[in-house]
Design a protein around this nucleic acid. Structure first.
Length: 138
RNA sequence: AGAGUCAGCCGAAUGGUCGCAGCCCUUCGGGGAUGAGGAAAGUCCGAGCAUCGUACGGCAGAGUGACGGGUAACGCCCGCUGAAGGCAACUUUAAGGACAGUGCAACAGAAAUAAACCGCAGUAUGCAAAAUACUGUAAGGGUGGAAAGGUGUGGUAAGAGCACACCGGCAAUUCGGCGACGAAAUUGGCCGUGUAAACCCCACUUGAUGCAAGAAGAAACAGAUAGUUUGCCCGACUUGUUUCGAUUCGCUUGAGCAUAUCGGUAACGAUACGCCUAGAUAGAUGACCAUUUAAGACAGAACUCGGCUUACAGACUGACUCUACCG
RNA sequence: GGCUCCAUGGUCAAGCGGUUAAGACUCAGGCCUCUCACGCCUGCUACUCGGGUUCGAAUCCCGAUGGAGUCA
């Protein structure tokens, strides 16, 4: 996950201005189609496109303790989504998760549900019912 | 029993499943041990380390300020002295110098550093009184943070440390203490405000910049004009400027930690034995469950140490003081 | 992570340790005008917080809080 994280500042700017966004209760999700991800596709042994992930946790959230906590919640939530519903998730996007002030005091479960809702509205996460391919492994 | 003072210590633990960071092992399937704090914070001091020019050249500037010790060093700590506060345990204390010099002291008040406005007394003018002028006088007077040692007696024209007694303060000598300083006695003279966290004087310390320091690259341009070093002087040195790039090192074994003994009132030191305890670079500690009644404070390492300051739920330990009651 | 600076009414801003802390804009009331604006008069609101030095602190010193800048 570390190698695929968004490190370039200009990609953040691009995603904010050109991408689509959806605000939830705790998190704002920005997405943008990733056009230059070929080197990550080659690196992957299965040659599948990946979602590149970025976090945005501003000074507004609080001190170092609150900011670290928010980052961990976002990372863990995405990890659980990827693990349990990876087959339903569309890939090949730049995905930015921006924390809102209300994330202080929220639990992992709440944040995860919030992200899932936003993803469904943005159309990159399919609903659970129409799951056609069950043979796809891990 | 109540009220209080001081010091120290802890700051969730254990187990299971999934996940993260660097390290080690690997039969490349995986496995193993380790992984935030007492303040990691503020960046207020002191050091290590690095670069510059070698750093104990001078001036300026900055800092510190009773004494003795501890320490790598300090503006820190320990002990002790003085002062202030508290019935006490104890606490606080930037605590050198105001006879080197300069400045300031608003308002009030006669007068603010040495003072004559009122008052008191004498002399002259005047028959006298009153008044005026001169002289002496700090005992009395409203003010003020501060008014020139305090009280009493003598003394005097009126007064005054002018003299004496007691008290207070200062200086010298003797005594005790390593010292700051303390105690008593004798002698001296009557002793002229506050402010140095105002300038300043004295003593001591201090080169500057900071890991984004710095080392290891590439290209272009200019070339002894100048540039660098500290504010300046002196002295010294020689390629410099700009752009691109973001990898490796610096990067964690250190004035380190734990235990025991010895020395010291203590801070701390010495010796012996044992241990290795985060090292990232979009930046690692999380999710779910179980048990302990409940898991709840302040808060997250970024080159590293020693202190200081500030924030902090709750829990524990020890020493001491005062008051009341009982014996 | 290192370094540097700032804080005075609602806003901008002056202030040699000493009066009741200048001034401008805003706001409120009044005057002027047929009415509005301009103008004139009056008023309301402040020294970031806690200690210390001093007779006396917005000012000097120490600590805290908040804000800003800078170094790739």
């Amino acid at each position: 996950m570390k190698n695929t994280a968004i490190k370039e500042n200009h990609l953040y700017g691009k995603a904010y201005t050109k991408g689509k966004s959806q605000a939830g209760k705790y998190v704002v999700v920005y997405i943008l189609k990733d056009t230059k991800n070929s080197r990550f596709v080659k690196a992957d042994p299965c040659h599948r496109p990946l979602n590149r992930l970025g976090w945005s946790v501003g000074k507004k959230i609080g001190g170092a303790v609150e900011r670290s906590r928010a980052k961990r919640l976002l990372r863990e939530s995405y990890r659980l989504i990827e693990k349990e519903k990876g087959t339903l998730l569309s890939h090949g996007y730049l995905l930015i998760l921006a924390a809102r002030v209300r994330i202080n005091g929220a639990g992992c479960q709440q944040v995860r549900e919030d992200i899932e809702k936003s993803m469904i509205k943005l159309g990159i996460l399919a609903k659970t019912e129409p799951a056609p391919e069950t043979t796809d492994k891990k």
